[in-house]
Design a protein around this nucleic acid. Structure first.
Lengths: 241, 241
DNA sequence: CGGCAAATTGACTCATGTCAAGCTATGTGG
DNA sequence: CCACATAGCTTGACATGAGTCAATTTGCCG
């Protein structure tokens, strides 16, 4: 891996408390690789070969069944995905593809498992990461089970607004059809949901959304720290691997 | 705790590889307690005080928002719940209540966190448990996003049949309204879903369900190891904490 | 500028939730 | 032991939310 990328990786929560020697060993065996847009990185059912770290760009995690497909999460820098499969040495439960040109760090699964056994700082970091991912997924399930699609969209917009610094204008980080699937609806329905939110001050222009009446929108959305998180960027930087 | 319950606990995946001295320490500080049916054990938003182990009976994990409520999982013996909240020392994201008279082992959260730091066998077990729980939740999300309610019910019945030993008759472990909420539908809809499955050999009599045409049912359900698991009892013994 | 994918819109169908009534099973108290 | 009360379950009629299909329109990339 290029030496100027090292500090970035080194500072990830997952690697921060790792021994220097462990990190060296890992860095020596990992690949930093560039991928164009739309590349399939992993396929559900395949054995877990690498722990993936998104250094640049973004990766969509999705799953299929019986000719249907659904987006499960979008991973943005700097985060990892499919940690659980690597730890358990089990098949992937989700597939992943790049949403744009991206750079990924690929760490061989055996290296992760070995260091996990020998480096206690690392293993604690892994538990912390996993527990966080788990809680993210619980939130996501609550979101799906307890809210209507319009409520989900409203809360998503408010969460994005917070993540992007409470500005009036929010930019959608990915295509609307991906967003639709993430929120558990069809693209057509997402369009209509945006229209429904018009009276609440939601004005869409391409990938830019203006929230002109955040107060009204919040009354509708009723965001909750137990679903939407509190600390900033859940959904963007703490997705769900 | 009573000494004749110890072996049971000791043999849990989570505690099996723990040092004897750690286990002693933990056992000395834990409470084994009996609860009648319908008792609220934990409430979402509360700080994580105890790791809970269901020794006997069953516990429903549920969540609420805006006057709505949804079941998230049912935990049966011998399994733990809210491990993630304990590890991260964060508020519970779900509430829990006993579905029947139950016996629970309560381990103070600080004890778990301390042993997690000092006993590497224990910390590895925790990671394994967490990763398993995480994957269980991913499966559950796929189930919800990719299948219709009838397909979910059909797959649930087949999974139960497998968990209960491939017998023709399957017994529902809890009330139908709880099952309905777990499967992401209303009780009324569950009734209709059962009726819809009639032509596929599903005959309901109270809490007993006969699957007289498992072949046909399987054609409809299209169970997948990447959603329903393979090793027996996911959904019963490997819910999602 | 042209072509293609994404997004929107409309009309329609289907699935699911809601409300209300009735049924059934279970457990309790007389 | 029976009658009643209650909670759970079922059924029907209806409303509504969401998916589907098809036709445009928009916007982007070559």
């Amino acid at each position: 891996m290029r030496s100027d990328d090292m500090p970035l990786i080194r500072d990830l929560p997952l690697f921060r408390s790792m021994d220097d020697s462990s990190f060296e060993e890992m860095a020596g065996l990992a690949y930093l690789q560039r991928f164009p847009q739309g590349v399939d990185l992993i396929t559900e059912g395949d054995p877990a070969d690498f722990l993936h770290v998104v250094v640049d760009g973004s990766v969509e995690l999705f799953a299929g069944w019986n000719d249907r497909e659904a987006s499960m999460a979008v991973v943005v820098p700097v985060n990892t995905f499919i940690l659980a499969a690597v730890i358990r040495d089990s098949p992937y439960l989700m597939s992943g593809r790049t949403l744009e040109a991206s750079r990924l760090l690929l760490i061989p699964a055996e290296v992760v498992r070995k260091l996990f056994r020998t480096d206690s700082g690392f293993s604690r970091a892994i538990v912390d990461e996993l527990a966080g991912c788990y809680r993210g997924l619980v939130r996501e399930s609550k979101n799906l089970k307890l809210r209507s699609s319009i409520e989900r969209l409203a809360n998503y917009l408010l969460a994005q607004q917070r993540a992007q610094g409470e500005r009036e204008h929010v930019t959608l980080r990915y295509e609307k059809r991906v967003l639709a699937s993430l929120l558990g609806m069809t693209p057509e329905n997402l369009s209509r949901a945006f229209a429904t939110l018009g009276p609440y001050g939601v004005e869409v222009d391409g990938r830019t959304v203006r929230l002109s009446k955040p107060r009204d929108l919040r009354v509708l959305a009723k965001p909750s720290p137990l679903i939407d998180g509190r600390g900033g960027d859940w959904g963007a930087n703490r997705p769900d691997h």
